[in-house]
């Protein structure tokens, strides 16, 4: 089975890329596969290139990859209560990143771990460093998790649904914190989320995934202003709008995501799509550029836009 197919994205320092998709769309797997975090076997990764500053990650062996994980690429996971080790103190879990990658040992590594806790906005940093995960609040745990992802001073931080388990107010704090840190440290940020609303406020560019493929990618303005793929349009119209006073029924997309074990031969969105043509069921649509920064994988929509623009030119 192919959980992820032909995924292609890039992100620059100081930039935020959001990968958006429903659960099971392959967004996490795509990011984890880059750095050998998908257990293999059973998984096999057949990609051409995954380039980090000129270094092809897919050509590296596990030992080399492990040197990059945590140092040049940091991770922040969702649900820190289960993603943090319950029997090790927060300080220990951060300082082991420093010991592993920066070759700093013992007391100095511990001191730096506490410094990182200060930088992610924890006032009682020494107290938190000596605590175990279960003794902290959800927001505190996620801050600690971010400190851990940053402790190796990465060029790229991959955050997998970092705000999903948190209250809305805490979510906003975490988003602000991560953007602040991205700018301070000049790193690239990949934010994986199912929540278009959260992503709108933080990303420069957005890639929408459906059934293991990217179906649309573009700048935030492109995606929210001129969504082109029928799936993206469906997603955006199903975000509840708090500004409308009239109570209206929330728009939904009929049907469900396809079983990755039995993907249709053509476009995976075909069974749920409103604008499909006969051809869509036969061939997987290729990515087509519809403006300088905007790409979609939908033949009818791309043709329609090109045709409309052609008419406008006349």
């Amino acid at each position: 089975m192919h959980a992820v197919n032909g995924v292609d994205f890039d992100v620059a320092r100081g930039e935020s890329l959001a990968i958006v998709g429903e659960s099971g769309s392959g967004k996490t797997v795509a990011a984890m596969a880059l750095v050998g975090l998908v257990p293999s076997p059973p998984a096999r990764i057949r990609g051409e290139r995954a380039v980090l500053n000129g270094l092809n990650l897919l050509a590296l062996d596990e030992r080399k990859l492990s040197e990059i994980r945590g140092s040049r690429i940091g991770f922040v996971f969702q649900d820190p209560l289960s993603a943090l080790n319950p029997v090790l103190t927060i300080g220990r879990q951060i300082s082991e990143v420093i010991e592993r990658h920066l070759n700093i040992k013992g007391g100095e590594a511990k001191r730096r771990a506490v410094d990182w806790l200060v930088r992610v906005g924890i006032a009682d940093s020494q107290g938190v460093a000596d605590s175990f995960p279960h003794q902290l609040s959800g927001g505190m745990r996620q801050r600690a998790m971010i400190a851990m992802g940053l402790a190796g001073e990465p060029e790229l931080l991959i955050a997998d649904e970092p705000t999903t388990a948190l209250d809305v107010t805490v979510q906003a704090q975490i988003v602000d914190l991560m953007l602040q840190l991205r700018d301070d440290l000049g790193m690239a940020l990949v934010w994986i989320s199912h929540d278009l609303g959260v992503v709108a406020g933080l990303a420069d560019r957005v890639a929408v995934m459906y059934a293991g493929r990217i179906v649309e990618s573009g700048s935030v303005q492109d995606l929210y202003g001129r969504p082109a793929h029928p799936y993206t349009r469906g997603l955006i119209s199903s975000v509840p709008d708090l500004r409308t006073e009239r109570l209206s029924r929330l728009a939904t997309i009929p049907g469900g995501t396809p079983d990755p074990m039995a993907l249709p031969p053509g476009c995976a969105y075909f069974p749920r799509c409103g604008i499909s043509e006969r051809e869509c069921d036969a061939r997987v649509p290729v990515m087509a550029r519809i403006s300088s920064s905007h790409w979609i994988a939908c033949t009818p929509a791309a043709n329609g836009i090109v045709a409309a623009e052609g008419q406008g030119d006349e």
């Binding site: 750095v35 975090l37 289960s82 943090l84 990143v97």
Partner: peptide, 16 residues
């Protein structure tokens, strides 16, 4: 468990 994936994401050796 998830914390093992986290540990691997930190680049720790399998032994660690």
């Amino acid at each position: 468990q998830d914390y093992v994936r986290t540990a691997r994401a930190k680049g720790l050796s399998e032994r660690a």
